[in-house]
Design a protein around this nucleic acid. Sequence first.
DNA 1: AGCCAACAATTGACTCAGTCTAATATTTTT
DNA 2: AAAAATATTAGACTGAGTCAATTGTTGGCT
Lengths: 146, 146
Amino acid sequence: MQGDAEQLLREHGLQVTAQRLAILRAVSSRPHGTADELIDDVRAVIGSISRQAVFGTLNVLVEKNLLRRIQPAGSPARYEDRVGDNHHHLICRSCGLTFDIDCIVGAAPCLVAEEDHGFEIDEAEVLFWGRCPSCKRTGETDTPVG
Amino acid sequence: MQGDAEQLLREHGLQVTAQRLAILRAVSSRPHGTADELIDDVRAVIGSISRQAVFGTLNVLVEKNLLRRIQPAGSPARYEDRVGDNHHHLICRSCGLTFDIDCIVGAAPCLVAEEDHGFEIDEAEVLFWGRCPSCKRTGETDTPVG
DNA sequence: AGCCAACAATTGACTCAGTCTAATATTTTT
DNA sequence: AAAAATATTAGACTGAGTCAATTGTTGGCT
């Protein structure tokens, strides 16, 4: 995967650095991770990295469409490397556990608003909210996801 | 409307205060307003109120289901008094302008995930993202909504 | 009407997630 | 190998919201 990641960065006109490769690998091995989780993962692999390098890199990768950012209510942003389709998400209100959900309707844009108010609509984001099996079981209280 | 709001608070076991009434009225006259916008509105009406009173009141009102909170990515939370249905939202990426969109499928829950991963799903939130007519016109840059 | 317990509002410090800026270091190009 | 471009670091800062202690208000009860 290292080679692929390197290739990917070059193709998008980005310099190849150990930090970027590590971040890319961290996102792919922990889909829907938050920036802080990814920082920990990257540190475990390459020893050290600054918060800002991670935020900066995540931002350019999202901008270049190598990553997708999702920002569920009450949670810090999460990142995934599944881009290019418009799949959706199922999120636990208690613990923030997140799954990908394939679009129920079809290809993106999978939903169409009847009245578009003159907007140029580019995305229909669907978030399924609920409670994951383990939070159901423990009867955990409705603390904001983290 | 004053009488209705008062009634509404009492029915939900909440004390009636000038602040709460003003907040309720502010939300209904500015649907999708942010907390800061609502603070300004309330101050214009009753002279003064603390930030915390507004945040605290919005929280209890959301908790009691008198208001609904929406938290679009990149924007502070917005509040509306249209509760009890599961309508959706159309949001401008540039300026945050928000419209209600009636559910395209039917009654809530209007969408069903094929694979629920054992979750107890309670809401399907749909956000249509785009660019409003006036931001299209001015070619305004993609600054985060505010 | 007046009292009092519960509830609400105010004040001010604090947190969390993320951004900005300036300085330094590393890549890539020449 | 040097220059130009780009990336990384450190640390201050911002915005949105929370927490805790104190003061003030509301509404039920004599």
